[in-house]
Nucleic acid binder design. Structure first.
Lengths: 259, 259
DNA sequence: GAGTGGTCTAGACCACCAC
DNA sequence: TGGTGGTCTAGACCACTCA
């Protein structure tokens, strides 16, 4: 095959018109990556499923296996795909996370594994408050689902979460559905609402417990709490969940790795 | 050249004795990576300097350029090296961080760039306290340097840091040297003590300000503060700094990206 | 044994930089 | 103009999985 480094995908098939200025050059493997991401976004392959093999994709896109490989490499590095030698490449899922909670960075101070119980407090639909609407990119007056829940270690409440979701995308979400669900909440979102969280941004503060929070977390008013505001994104950098958590950090801590 | 995939480096030169059980197979590019890391660790190339080109390294190790490339790719992903097209590959440094503080995740709530002033409060040598010694892997009774400082935004104290360093590695560190230094502290460590921080682990909690901290941060006793314990590592996963910070988070927050 | 991802090579050309 | 990293190809063989 001729060397077509730097040419747009299938440049030898497509007519190449005048470049309008700022050709936005991108290497073949990135173009392929972006096609693959679009396929994921469109639901061509669902979380947990195998995608076609590297050789097949190479044939389909008419490039060498190495080029497909580099596209998949990047997607694996971003946790969009998971490679398994001898078996294939799979769409990442929140189902089999060994950690159970991929995005929850709260860890017991002793080494013991987390093991938290969930206690659903509330689940209701309402007009999205202004700040929530802004962060989720909703129209004002658009509906939202609010979920409030506790995470407990034994009998001790450790986390109080307020979760906000766009009402349109999460039409069938009810208290019953949430109560009945066993497994990570993000797995429920994947399975029932075709929403797959791929990354999140968190803003962390120290705050003093207010009356309501203190009551729910069984703490004195004014006790220091970790406030964690998480905005989660799905394919295409679209924010789809706002989560405001209050973490009790006397026997737990938020761990982070700086690289 | 023959295909030597999966064989230890220079297997065609070295006699290959009986494998003792658990041959600990590692691909060529990883062996090369580990040799390169050893070179960095040994100070063969200093932070900011160019390392030899890919072709030269390939010739030196008698492998193909692609194999060297893959080793360097991984090291670049870990922020050990920085590639610059057309110029070469450079040893990463804390000197030119656009962000000034590569490991400081505290950000103003409005978008404004951080711009913090430093105020050195203390710098003394002493026997390392037991917990510090344990975390830094020091012998009991070994000496340590303690640095205490404030970071201020204008006149408002925002961060109170207590920094612990192994006394042996930081022999010449004095108040005067710290006072005189302009630029990131980690750059000083690189330049004067040949200690390059490559990664860090943080444990974050919410705490109530004690009397001393409250005084230094100009806050009421009991005010909620973010407690950030950072353990920083140099080449070979050797911990070389313990930093206990208290962050004031009324106008700032700790930002984090989950992937 | 067939199929998958993983490693390695050799060689081509492109994009960028400095002299 | 020559050197550096960046992209792409083609083809070989290895390691792993499963029928």
């Amino acid at each position: 095959m001729e060397d077509n480094a730097g040419m747009p995908l299938r440049a030898d098939d497509l007519a190449m018109p005048e470049l309008p200025a700022g050709p936005a050059f991108s290497p073949l493997y990135r173009q392929i990556k972006s096609l693959l991401v679009k396929s994921l976004q469109g639901g061509a392959w669902l979380p947990g499923q195998v995608i076609p093999s590297e050789v097949e994709l190479a044939a389909r896109f008419r490039v060498s296996q190495g080029t497909v490989r580099k596209a998949i490499d990047e997607m694996a590095a971003e946790n969009l795909l998971v490679r398994r030698q001898g078996k294939g490449t799979f769409v990442a899922t929140h189902a089999e996370q060994a950690t159970q909670y991929r995005f929850l960075r709260l860890t017991p101070d002793d080494g013991t594994p987390p093991e938290l119980q969930r206690k659903l407090l509330e689940c209701r639909r309402m007009r999205a408050p202004a700040d929530v609407a802004r962060l989720l990119g909703l129209n004002p007056a658009e509906s939202a689902v609010q979920v409030r829940r506790l995470l407990l270690k034994g009998d001790i409440p450790v986390v109080l979460d307020d979760i906000w979701l766009p009402g349109t995308a999460f039409k069938g979400l009810t208290v019953e559905r949430l109560q009945a669900w066993r497994g990570p909440m993000y797995r429920l979102f994947e399975a029932e609402f075709a929403v797959h969280m791929i990354r999140a941004e968190e803003k962390i503060r120290a705050v003093a417990a207010g009356a309501e929070e203190a009551g729910l977390l069984l703490l004195p008013v004014g006790a220091p709490l970790l406030s964690v505001e998480r905005l989660s994104y799905t394919y295409g950098d679209r924010p789809v969940e706002l989560r405001r958590g209050l973490y009790q950090t006397t026997a737990h801590h938020y761990r982070n790795e700086l690289i």
